[in-house]
Design a protein around this nucleic acid. Sequence first.
DNA 1: TCAAAAGTGTTAGATTTACACCCATGA
DNA 2: TCATGGGTGTAAATCTAACACTTTTGA
Lengths: 225, 225
Amino acid sequence: MTSFYKEHQKIFLSVDCIIFGFEENKLKVLIGKRKMDPGRGEWSLYGGFVRNDESLDEAADRTLYELTGLRNVYMRQVGAFGSINRDPGERVVSVAYYALINVTDYNDKLQAEHQVEWVDVNDIPTMFSDHNDMIRRARKLMQQKIKTEPISFQLLPSLFTLTQLQRLYEAVNGEEVDKRNFRKRIKEMEFIERTDLIDKQLSKRGASLYRFNKKMFEKDATFKL
Amino acid sequence: MTSFYKEHQKIFLSVDCIIFGFEENKLKVLIGKRKMDPGRGEWSLYGGFVRNDESLDEAADRTLYELTGLRNVYMRQVGAFGSINRDPGERVVSVAYYALINVTDYNDKLQAEHQVEWVDVNDIPTMFSDHNDMIRRARKLMQQKIKTEPISFQLLPSLFTLTQLQRLYEAVNGEEVDKRNFRKRIKEMEFIERTDLIDKQLSKRGASLYRFNKKMFEKDATFKL
DNA sequence: TCAAAAGTGTTAGATTTACACCCATGA
DNA sequence: TCATGGGTGTAAATCTAACACTTTTGA
């Protein structure tokens, strides 16, 4: 292969995943203790190096798959983090991605194996390198996104109650919302359809289960929360 | 230096600048013909490789400075672009940044020297690699940003008329707005202050010149357009 | 029978949009 | 004197936010 750019320097490139999940009415992030020097033992996002034969998006997908066994997960790029000394070992530029997963899809065996934990996003410890910044930015981007795109369903089981959906919005935005106003807006969205199924786990009376109808959304195509 | 990560691959990293300017009531981007193989002669953003001794932000600042001679310019990261074959020469991952400059600050000599041109953002030709995507994404981010942060002033001279400001918003958002409603909202923002100066370039009657008061903005700190 | 969560409408206030005419001046 | 861009207010419509009680049922 010819080398067009040989006078320039190459740099290590990694990806880091901010994996969001919704559990116990809280927005959580999957983090673990770093298993590599330097920084071994510090709280850290799960990440990996980018290979020459994969795109950044592919590297992020692969990394997420290694950790969770999940494919076709909703992932979006947060941005590139490139301070000179962000990694104490060597110069490494990292591209952060956030992922939204349904916690019940997540294989417990893999979780135990990688020793990662779900931590409340409001209660993140001090982390390795610039990982706290990455989480902050990912959260902000996700908050913006959830206002204009129906991504909340990525964090829920395919059948969910309106209370679950409301608690999810509250956890993401960090503030409570009025139940009646919330439900009013949801009812206007035809792509959030009520099933005849009833969930009795949380209440004696039972709550209707709803589902997100993707095809209907794509026709309808307005969303605003 | 110890090498912690030597089993991994390094990759060429570049930055590309989407430089926005406002001229003739249009939002424009500064682009030129690529002077490097491969792709020589194609329309291209101005970019450069990231060096090991500079952060990504510094690389972007340096690249912008090389082209325009300007420092302390408003720049924000658009994101990392990392398809495997995005560059026909070799694997290069590029981090795009957008910059907002006041076209009258831009040194004509440097413009001639680098043979770059201001092109209407609605009329961008087919460009090298994924540069069209970069411009699209930069524009979208900028459109979002301008709604919640007072960045428009970066694109204007320090003294400007309300009509200029309105035309700028229209150019950025791609739609016309009502003059009275626009001015009503501006008047509510105390940090956009009227001076006693009158601009007579466009009208016989003359238009009041306004200026952005940064200190007042930082106190006041609400913005919504 | 009662505790606990589900479900349901109305109204006041705030925000947004639509809209048309007079003013000042240089050519 | 007239053509050109500068400057101004009001009313209708829409959207948002606040607010409390009834229902169901398992324990």
